[in-house]
């Protein structure tokens, strides 16, 4: 159902690096899960509206007023690398387009 090439493609989209063994195992496991899931393909769902939220809600709006928020140093405290102004990361210049 899903082949090795597709698994590698999806892993790239998900920013997951998989070992060779993981790719092999994932290909088999995802295929058997997808086979099961595909049973819903037998249902006639043509006229059925999709549900994304189960409990009826009016649009929830609030006044756009500034409120207290986390101080910058607290928000940065758990970062693996930061300076006084923000999160630090290596240069993204070598990021290839997926």
């Amino acid at each position: 159902m899903i082949d090795r090439e597709q698994v590698l493609h999806v892993a790239r989209l998900a920013r997951l690096r998989l070992t060779d063994a993981e790719v092999g195992r994932m290909t088999g496991e995802l295929s058997s899960i997808l086979d099961h899931i595909e049973k819903i393909g037998e249902l006639d769902l043509e006229e059925v509206a999709p549900t994304s939220h189960v409990i009826e809600l009016e649009n929830v709006l609030r006044a756009d007023e500034p409120r207290e928020s986390l101080p910058r140093e607290v928000a940065l405290r758990e970062a693996p690398d930061s300076d006084a102004t923000g999160f630090r990361v290596p240069s993204p210049s070598t990021v290839e387009e997926a």
């Binding site: 920013r15 997951l16 690096r17 758990e78 970062a79 693996p80 690398d81 999160f87 990361v89 290596p90 240069s91 993204p92 210049s93 070598t94 990021v95 290839e96």
Partner: peptide, 19 residues
């Protein structure tokens, strides 16, 4: 992704840091 909280692994470019 190793940027704002939690663990970070890797010291290469940004993409390999994420991965």
């Amino acid at each position: 992704d190793g940027v704002r909280f939690g663990q970070r692994v890797g010291d290469g470019d940004l993409l390999s840091l994420y991965e």
